[in-house]
């Protein structure tokens, strides 16, 4: 228990001795053999874990509510920077590895702190910060790609999403390959609808950016390209989205098509139900904010280490406490990864 004595020694420097040391309620003793700061960090982590599980449970609620029509993550997150073939999972696996790796450097920093090796703590804290920054950057890129979208879709009056594709033969098998709206829609020569802006009407009335095509233009394109078929949100027994026949495709777009959707935001989502996009932005956003604040806290501690604050304190417990928070951020990501990308 030399740590305990250390603690008391430090206390004597700052707090007036009460004369009740050694008694249970006399102060200075550590319930659960854990310091006040560390225990409070654990309690904060419990409450934050409950917050995150509240979000993920709400996501599960919405998903089970639309269990037969939820977007398939493998078709949504298929992008890798500078590589143009669809490759599901790879990028997010990279992000996961970066975060686990930064957790490892953090725990190595804590370990070096126990051995009072200032240079090592500095080095590992630096690596942890870099890992955190790479992760936040990747997250931002993932968001940008999701917001931009890739194929475009038609939203029906009932709010459902209709996507497009065609059957292509690959290795003797008929595969359904997605087709982007811009590859088959026929742009009307005239009849360009102008975006309603504030300067053209009443000062408080305007509208969001217009999609590149109108429903009519997509309809003309669909009529002209006889190979293009419509795919609905519904998942069939093979775990794939239902592809409609040619006649049914034309009928759906003609009778139910209401607006063209490109990419995803809080209102619409070309990959399926808008709830998917809402939860994606909210949960990964909340997690990303945790990573960001973790990086800021790590930077503060990093400078404290360099300045020798903990060297003078003869104790690197502060590194251990921010370490707990940092590992918790990694822990949450493990669950977000499973529920957004795998399951």
């Amino acid at each position: 228990m030399s740590n305990f004595k250390n603690e008391c020694y430090r206390m004597d420097n700052t707090v007036v001795s009460t004369g009740t040391e050694g008694k249970t309620w006399g102060g200075g003793s550590q319930p659960l053999k854990s310091s006040y700061g560390k225990m409070m960090m654990w309690f904060f982590i419990v409450s934050d874990a409950l917050t995150f599980s509240g979000f993920l449970a709400a996501y599960g609620f919405s998903r089970f509510k639309f269990i037969d029509a939820w977007p398939i993550a493998d078709e949504v997150f298929t992008h890798i920077p500078f590589y143009h073939e669809p490759a599901p999972m790879i990028y997010v696996a990279f992000m996961t590895f970066v975060l686990i790796m930064s957790s490892v450097t953090m725990v190595l920093a804590v370990d070096a702190g126990h051995e009072m090796k200032k240079a090592k703590v500095t080095f590992y804290m630096f690596l942890t910060i870099i890992g955190g920054l790479i992760f936040v950057g990747s997250q931002a890129w993932e968001w940008a790609t999701f917001i931009k979208g890739d194929y475009g879709a038609i939203q029906t009056k009932g709010g459902n999403i209709l996507q497009f594709g065609e059957y292509v033969e690959k290795d003797g098998e008929q595969l359904f390959k997605r087709v982007a709206i811009k590859d088959f829609a026929i742009e009307a020569a005239h009849d360009v609808r102008e975006q309603h802006q504030r300067k053209n009407g009443i000062w408080f009335m305007n509208e969001g950016s217009l999609p590149s095509y109108t429903v009519d233009e997509v309809m003309h394109g669909l009529e002209a390209n006889t190979n293009v078929l419509v795919r609905t949100q519904l998942i069939n027994e093979d775990g794939e989205k239902t592809v409609l026949t040619r006649e049914e495709s034309l009928r759906q777009i003609k009778e139910n098509g209401k607006s063209v959707v490109e990419g995803a935001n809080l209102h619409v989502n070309e990959y399926g139900t808008p709830l998917f996009a809402d939860f994606f932005f909210f949960i990964t956003g909340f997690h990303g904010f945790h990573v960001f604040s973790g990086v800021v806290i790590n930077i503060i501690i990093f400078f404290n280490v360099i300045l020798g604050t903990y060297e003078r304190r003869k104790n690197y417990e502060m590194v251990e406490k921010v370490g707990l928070y940092w590992h918790f951020v990694d822990l949450v990501w493990v669950f977000v990864f499973t529920f957004f990308y795998l399951v």
Binding site: S34, W42, I45, M106, L324, H327, L331
Partner: peptide, 19 residues
């Protein structure tokens, strides 16, 4: 992650169960 990176393995049983 909890047991080895966050050192839960080295904490007391009571703290472990509480969390």
């Amino acid at each position: 992650i909890t047991w080895d990176f966050m050192h839960m393995r080295d904490e007391t049983k009571a703290l472990r169960r509480m969390v």
